[in-house]
Design a protein around this nucleic acid. Structure first.
Lengths: 255, 255
DNA sequence: TGCCGGGTGGCACCGCGTGCCATACCGTGA
DNA sequence: TCACGGTATGGCACGCGGTGCCACCCGGCA
């Protein structure tokens, strides 16, 4: 593992660069886990990956970043998810799909995520680093909601920015909670389903606001007849127009 | 300002230590604002405050911390607010009083807060530092809510930890929003009243959940009909779903 | 007067992060 | 096949943040 890795013959230059980056990240994780974060120098990481110290900093801006090699790419992917959302989708649902993308990144390598979680709990610097990374997603969501709340039906006046920030924060908090619980459990189980369930719980609890989406109880929110007519009855009126719209849309799609 | 400050005669040793700390913080703020953060070395800060470089690190753990000298004390004070809360008070209200304590810290020195805000927007390291500081309050609130939700009347089963985290996050998000808006406005106006208003808005919007305390208004602003029900009939079904949506939306807005 | 403890100054040291330049490698075109 | 330009790398030096260590000063106390 600490040996310099010979280049694979089939790799191009950019693939080789990716390989070096992955080797560095793996070496860093291994050394941090085995001998501690502070006791590990960048020189050791570089040596373990078979490259020079200077090369390490060409791949990672700092020593801490070697533990979170995927946040930058994930942030871009989440941004693409938001940009490519269908115009009819409720902005909050879009944001939920966005944060799910983040969760998926963790879930793709459970053992690495669990070990990294152990480190971030012990080393304050790493903890702050991760908090800062998650805050970037939250800012992205807040900006997105800010730009899409006014397109939606509901109209809360000057409180939209506040609600956008609170909503983004709530979605991220749900993600954090589900993720950490999953990590504490050792990375076992379908974490993505757990996050969806958390969204349902939140929408059930706070749903009368801008949460939307949850089917109204007791009576199906929308019934579609086969006679060439559509009759939609919404029982609860204190739902926002946006929620009404979204519920109707779901029913239309199901028909 | 860069001169070594002579000790006041009436000050004890500990008061003198506080004075040195304040001088260092003031010198740091002044230098950061005048010549930039990265361009300012700890040696310069110490020299401007009339002490040795080593003394700087006896008062602040790092260079960044010199800009946020009050977060540690404030965190302790917020903890005391939570601990000394009356048992009858709703936990969420207690947490709101806690975050208000944080806001008050900023509001006590508006010009310093505004200048610091300008710096934190430009220097990523300082931004991350502040995010980490605020996250500490959020963690404190989450733990508090976790320990006090079961004492409350409502009972949501295993979802309490999730709701605690989301609620704490929402309160902090509201604080962040109000604070930043106030800072962008130059630190003018009654920011504490604005925060209280934000709490009202949030409780009105999400109030049916664990928001507690605040009674839901008879008809939320999003109310569509006065009968408590909305019935929408769309005659033609072979219209595209998008057209149906537009028609419904029009009807909702007209109501 | 001697002692004691906390704050300080000064020094040395480690390690992170960056700038700079020479070098090796790879793909491209003649 | 060779030359060439762009790119990743190695190696070196430097600045600076942060820490450990020791000597010093100074106020309190017997």
């Amino acid at each position: 593992m600490a040996q310099p890795v010979k280049p694979a013959r089939t790799s191009s230059a950019t693939a080789q660069r990716h390989r070096v980056r992955q080797d560095l990240a793996a070496a860093a994780m291994h050394l941090f886990a085995s001998q501690g974060y502070e006791a590990t120098t960048v020189d050791e990481i570089a040596a373990a990956a078979g490259v020079a110290r200077r090369t390490f900093f060409r791949h990672f801006r700092s020593k801490e970043e070697a533990i979170f090699p995927d946040h930058d790419d994930t942030l871009v992917r989440v941004g693409e998810v938001l940009e490519s959302a269908e115009p009819h989708e409720h902005p909050l649902d879009t944001v939920c799909r966005g944060i799910t993308e983040v969760l998926r990144m963790y879930a793709e390598a459970p053992e690495v995520s669990v070990e990294r979680y152990r480190l971030t709990r012990e080393i304050p610097i790493l903890r702050e680093r991760e908090i800062a990374s998650v805050a970037r997603y939250e800012r992205l969501f807040t900006r997105y909601l800010l730009g899409h709340f006014d397109e939606s039906a509901h109209r809360d006046g000057d409180d939209d920015p506040l609600l956008a920030e609170v909503a983004a924060s709530a979605v991220v908090a749900a993600h954090n909670h589900v993720l950490r619980r999953w990590l504490r459990a050792g990375g076992k189980g379908d974490v993505e389903a757990q996050l969806d369930h958390a969204f349902v719980v939140i929408k059930d609890t706070f749903g009368t606001g801008i949460g939307g989406g949850r089917a109204l109880p007791a009576a199906p929110p929308a019934t579609v007849s086969t006679t060439g007519e559509v009759v939609i009855a919404v029982a609860r009126t204190n739902a926002s127009p946006a929620e009404v719209m979204r519920t109707i849309e779901k029913a239309l799609k199901g028909a």
